[in-house]
Design a protein around this nucleic acid. Sequence first.
DNA 1: TTTGAAAAACGAAACTCTTAGTATTTACTC
DNA 2: GAGTAAATACTAAGAGTTTCGTTTTTCAAA
Lengths: 131, 131
Amino acid sequence: MRQKKKSELLTEVELEFMTQLWDLGEATVRDVLDQLPEGRNLAYTSGATILKILETKEFVTSRKDGKRHIFKPTLAKDAYQTRSLKDLSVKLFDDTPASLVARLVNDDALTEEALGQIRALVDRRLKNDTG
Amino acid sequence: MRQKKKSELLTEVELEFMTQLWDLGEATVRDVLDQLPEGRNLAYTSGATILKILETKEFVTSRKDGKRHIFKPTLAKDAYQTRSLKDLSVKLFDDTPASLVARLVNDDALTEEALGQIRALVDRRLKNDTG
DNA sequence: TTTGAAAAACGAAACTCTTAGTATTTACTC
DNA sequence: GAGTAAATACTAAGAGTTTCGTTTTTCAAA
């Protein structure tokens, strides 16, 4: 019997915390809390709970340093970005990355500069593949 | 006092239903249920509940036809795709679409064909803007 | 070695999401 | 108009998410 596939995606608050951890490399509860944007006032215990949950879900590991825990991502941001894009692509773009990009480049809010950067990226990848 | 900002994003099951509605144009509870993939066995009342929720959240409207309701999206799939991409971009790519595309084109799973399509899309958009 | 502050462990309340059972309404058929 | 099948309305259970209070543990300083 196959295990029920868990989502493997972060919830809103989990992502908020992982973002800080990716930035810091590794951090204590206190570090993460301090890193959160102004006005985001979470109780210390809330932060501890989130990190605990992330550890249970195996998005982070922890080691002890004195009396405190130091947390570190087990999944790189790159990898999670790829995973999220795949998920979005499957759920909303028929698993067709080109149609995802189509929607992106047809967005009026996209600047000319961003468009140029995107083209450069694609060209570079194409060159590397063939040359 | 500002209204608490609602997420404006669909939940998992809401998206599942909206996908069918976008496909069908408009539909009854029964229609959507019939359209779901094999093996997805939802009680009729569950389907009705989801559509009701979607109506409350104003993702769909309904009109009566005899004794049944016919539901129709108020938000086009295109628009929701754009909204979702914006959300992902903000949350995971520093609101920088180019870095999102960078992650996409550096994904080894991306086919050469998809890459070519993407380049064509970008080129076309650039031509339209300048020419 | 006591003690005091910080951290962790534990437990849980409030809320949302997903699913569906029961009750009621609706509209057609005899 | 009464019966019936299908739809809607109402209600709620169970799981997961977000938040935090209380209790216990831990280390270091007096």
